[in-house]
Design a protein around this nucleic acid. Structure first.
Lengths: 225, 225
DNA sequence: AGCAAAGCGGAGACGCAATCTCCGAATCCC
DNA sequence: GGGATTCGGAGATTGCGTCTCCGCTTTGCT
């Protein structure tokens, strides 16, 4: 099912090696979910009950392992967006997409980092990331066609809403995991045709993409030496 | 005026030393504004045109220098809140407070880190931080008295709004610095008595304070070794 | 069973970045 | 002028994450 689970390597691995490869992938998913992407391969190996050496032999470096899983998660999110195209109410579709994606973040700390990662990855990761945008745009277009949204609303608004709610999830983690639902309603109300007037237009899509490239959650570029 | 500018040390510094002390403080403000709090004392010294040794002689360690400035910034924010108590419209007061504080963050990357810093600082910093909460609460109370807010709105809602907009500022930095204004309107509309219905209550104030203690912008606690 | 190839474990080498120290040289101020 | 003070910045120290290396174990073919 999952592409990363197939023993795709050319020289078939020995049975025990293949088993350990999967254990590493599973362990990585769990550790990423609990602690985010900023964990060491050593952490993952320990959680899998294996030695570091095993981890590094199987995956040349940490990025390869991470990228393996990023593709998985980005695909999941794209599928969520596509599924919401079938919602009867286009607005419910948008709300449903945001709600489901943010709900996933409650259980998985790495998801936010995956969506808003600035570091370019492998080709496969970029392809997967590129698939998410159009799916969200389709949701927004559908709501526009039904004349439910204010004219200036763009897909970037949905992305920004997701981003804002991500921080709420992070903030309330361990205390109020569902807090984001409160602000979700306020923000969804904002995009509606009869929502509150705003002088400020949304960020243009090209501009949004540029910003994505330089954005790093809660970090600033260091001063040049 | 600024408490940190007074030559408060017991043994008066030599003229050049005092001048350099101020240069360091000024340089720190500038570097923090541009790059956030995660810069080295070395960066600050270089920006001040001084050697590292000078910096470390004057300030025993980085925290002392940082704390000196944190007090300044927290006081500024508290004063913004207090000033908005004089606004004719209580809602305009809340909007004004959020808007001004977030606008400061456009120019100063360290501000967000100051407001939502989890690491406990010196006594003076804690006192300054403690002064901000009541000022915001007063703004909310005033709006409640005028029956302008939905009954369940708390000061924690205002804090969460500020937090969400902070991320928008970070995201749009260098592209759309004013983007936050768009979402500010949507969120302010959310707290109004006739705003969109929400099933989700706000985070309780005690809970909010606990969450503040563990929250670190875009970071997760490392797995225990 | 026997054996060669494949795989495992984890100590530690390595690289990097941040914090802070130290002391000869420069500066100040009486 | 001269003694005390301050400066500068190389580098010691510490901490952390990445990845390698090699003796030992396991596998699976014959």
């Amino acid at each position: 099912m999952l592409p990363s689970e197939t023993p795709s390597e050319s020289p078939a691995l020995r049975a025990d090696a293949e088993k350990n490869r999967r254990r590493l992938l599973t362990a990585a998913r769990e550790v990423f979910a609990e602690h985010g992407l900023d964990v060491t391969l050593d952490d993952i190996a320990r959680h899998a009950g294996l030695g570091v050496g095993t981890a590094y032999r199987r995956f040349p470096n940490k990025r390869v392992l991470i990228d393996e899983l990023l593709v998985e998660q980005l695909t999941t999110m794209r599928d969520i967006a596509r599924a919401q195209l079938d919602a009867q109410d286009p607005i419910a579709g948008i709300r449903g997409y945001v709600q489901e994606v943010v709900a996933l973040q409650v259980a998985d700390r790495s998801l936010k980092q995956v969506m808003f990662a600035s570091d370019r990855g492998q080709k496969r990761v970029e392809e997967a990331r590129a698939g998410l945008g159009p799916a969200v745009t389709a949701l927004v277009d559908r709501a526009h066609d039904a004349r439910l949204l204010r004219d200036d609303v763009l897909a970037s608004d949905v992305a920004m809403i997701t981003l804002m709610l991500s921080v709420v999830v992070d903030f309330g983690r361990g205390y109020e995991p569902e807090l984001y639902r409160r602000y979700l309603e306020w923000l969804i109300a904002g995009i509606l045709r009869d929502g509150p007037a705003t002088g400020q237009p949304p960020i243009a899509m090209e501009c949004f993409h540029s910003a994505m490239l330089t954005f790093k959650m809660g970090a600033a570029p260091k001063p040049q030496r």
